[in-house]
Computed example of a mutant assay.
Amino acid sequence: MKRLLFLVVKAFQAFDWPLLVILMLMAVLGMTVMHSAVGDTDWRFADQLRNFGLAFFAMWVVALIPPPKLMRLAPLVYAVGVALLLGVEFFGETSKGATRWLNLGIGRIQPSEMLKIGVPLMLAWYFHRHQGKIGFLDFVVAGVLLLIPFALIVKQPDLGTALLVFGAGFCVIYFGGLSFKLLAPAVIALVLAVGTLVYYEDQICMPDVDWVVLHDYQKHRVCTLLNPSSDPLGKGFHTIQSMIAIGSGGVYGKGYMQGTQSHLDFIPERTTDFIFAVYAEEFGLYGGILILILYALLILRGLTIAVRAHTQFGRLLAGSMAMMFFVYVFVNIGMVTGILPVVGVPLPFMSYGGTALLTLGVACGMLMSISRYRPGRR
């Protein structure tokens, strides 16, 4: 009996309660919107409820693992993830023009999801091992560790996941001490590239122009972002319909389950990538502000845990997990509102999907593990 009581107490001690409260609120809100978005396909609602259960269980299990053990697992997780990506390259299964899945005999997996956690975990381990003597060569090594999985994921192609992996890994490198002076040339080059793209849109978006570094469908997504009306019933349909749904919601929204754009099937992928359009149409501007506040609290709590962490590994890993949430939200809402091209990034704790939710659950479990860890305390 005492043993059971001890295990129960230990289980509750694993939670970071401010973070848990935020996640519970987001789960309730996510399931509420999912109920409206699924329409007649009620099986997706039940599946998403199961996905949340699995994600919270994974979060609890990871929260019980102290950061030193997580650090020892980092090289193994990274190596297995890269090996599986290479397996996808040579033996992967293709679906809808993309080779992202690997059949292990007992089921299919998408190894790129594993690298959302594996890359920042590995980079945090590397900088922790070299803390106090980090030089330029260390940033070069870290860059190589980041670019290997990034390049393999881009080749699948899966630009959305590649951006998330790159964003989470880059945050570790930046928090590890990368000087902003080294970033200035890259920022200037990016601004010039975007300006050139906008200025010469008519010429470079011609059908016979090859962008070399991007696939044709990725080129079309960028050109559609610049001018959605150029193909309103084709490539621009997603963006146009989501913007109509968000705008029609107005300030107060049309009311729960009263969204016409979603329930009349005008919004494509309304349960996954474009679920924010369903939410904004039904809950309006005030609802949009509410969910942005919840995401801000989630990110702020993650950064607070990073600041209070007792080890370099904990600070870097917690900071990258918090910024990964930011990249998720920024890219998804950006593409739904027509600010960014459509790249297939889900909205955290809102979009339907088991793998993405499991990844988010593991990330939150790591934050809780870092939050509760005290060096020298058993």
Rank of each mutant, 00 (worst) to 15 (best):
1 M>T: 10
9 V>L: 11
12 F>Y: 09
24 M>I: 15
40 D>Q: 05
42 D>C: 02
48 Q>E: 09
49 L>W: 00
50 R>L: 08
56 F>T: 00
57 F>Q: 02
60 W>A: 07
60 W>C: 02
60 W>F: 12
64 L>K: 13
64 L>G: 08
66 P>K: 15
66 P>T: 11
68 P>K: 01
73 L>R: 00
74 A>G: 13
89 E>P: 13
89 E>M: 12
90 F>Y: 10
96 K>V: 02
102 L>H: 12
102 L>K: 13
103 N>A: 05
105 G>T: 11
105 G>L: 12
105 G>D: 11
111 P>C: 14
114 M>C: 09
117 I>M: 12
120 P>F: 09
142 A>Q: 03
146 L>R: 06
147 L>T: 14
159 L>D: 12
162 A>N: 04
163 L>Y: 12
167 G>Y: 02
170 F>P: 01
170 F>I: 04
182 L>W: 14
186 A>D: 09
193 A>M: 05
200 Y>D: 02
201 E>H: 15
202 D>P: 08
206 M>V: 04
208 D>I: 02
211 W>Y: 10
214 L>M: 13
224 T>S: 14
233 L>E: 09
235 K>P: 01
243 M>G: 04
248 S>N: 14
250 G>D: 13
264 L>H: 11
268 P>C: 04
286 Y>P: 00
287 G>E: 10
288 G>F: 09
290 L>H: 01
298 L>D: 05
303 L>F: 15
307 V>K: 14
308 R>G: 02
312 Q>K: 11
312 Q>E: 06
320 S>V: 12
326 F>T: 05
328 Y>K: 13
329 V>F: 15
340 L>Y: 07
340 L>A: 10
342 V>H: 11
353 G>A: 01
353 G>H: 09
354 G>I: 08
356 A>E: 03
356 A>D: 04
358 L>T: 07
361 G>T: 01
364 C>D: 05
371 S>A: 13
373 Y>H: 07
375 P>E: 07
